[in-house]
Nucleic acid binder design. Structure first.
Lengths: 144, 144
DNA sequence: ATACGTGCAAAGTATTTGCAAACGG
DNA sequence: CCGTTTGCAAATACTTTGCACGTAT
């Protein structure tokens, strides 16, 4: 399986949308593709900077905005005032997160029954539901 | 049923915890008791001010902090950068929220199957889960 | 009387916006 | 070339903190 598939697809979809391949865009997309969990904008900014691939912080936010609009990344809010982003590699199989209140560790999880229950709620809500955010909080194995 | 039960219980629990009945504390608690949905700190502050019960914004935040710690209110993050708070009237029957992306309308919902599915996930997570936050997003009946 | 509570203003943090210069196609 | 993208700095928005004064107990 090709590990760089996502960044390629992202750049391709952006191009199709009339977006150019600017330096910041490529760097941020490339960075996101290397992550296996969600990251915040400031984190992306400082990591890229320390790797010698500096990018303006505003550009990071702008790139993330475009990616989120194209649904190439998922925004997530863990409740600490930082918006995090994660590459959407397999749109059909999405997952959620569980966060440790003590050490801040973030772990993903997926559950079919949960999704089915959510789908039912969504269908009976009277809303045209576009998405849902689920965050579990507690103490991780190491901290409790 | 007594509609002011919550504010009384809140003040009582705070007193038991060694907290005094300061003016800001009473006003914020009283205000929260009159709401039927979640509210943000700034909103509480300006509403109280326009009602002629002014309270310092910092005090609002401090009161909310104490209440959240004592689990008398629930924090919730709807993803728009504003932390909202809601009185916890019946700890055993909690609910979640669905938000309209267009008009910002917030509606509560509760679902037993969803809770059961969550409980299972929580038990198998390896975490000692303290709580969960669920937010559904979409277009409400009027906006879609 | 004396700790705790409050209000104001200043600081802190995350994010957004204005604008001139750089750059992709 | 020309419109898009970028980086910087300034602006915004929410929340937190420091500190002197007020007040509940």
């Amino acid at each position: 399986m090709n590990t760089t598939a996502w960044s390629e697809r992202a750049l391709q979809e952006l191009r199709a949308g009339g977006y150019r391949r600017g330096a910041a865009r490529i760097r941020v997309i490339d960075f996101l593709d290397r992550q296996d969990c969600c990251v915040g904008a400031q984190e992306i900014h400082s990591e890229l900077r320390s790797r010698g691939e500096p990018v303006g912080l505003a550009s990071v936010y702008r790139v993330l905005d475009v990616l989120a609009e194209k649904r190439l990344v998922q925004r997530l809010d863990l409740g600490d005032g930082v918006t995090r982003f994660e590459a959407v590699r397999h749109p059909e199989e999405h997952h959620h997160h569980i966060v440790c209140d003590d050490c801040g560790k973030i772990e993903p999880f997926a559950d079919q029954r949960l999704e089915l229950a959510l789908r039912d709620v969504e269908e009976n809500s009277g809303f045209a539901v576009a998405g849902h955010d689920i965050v579990l909080r507690g103490a991780c194995g190491a901290c409790r």
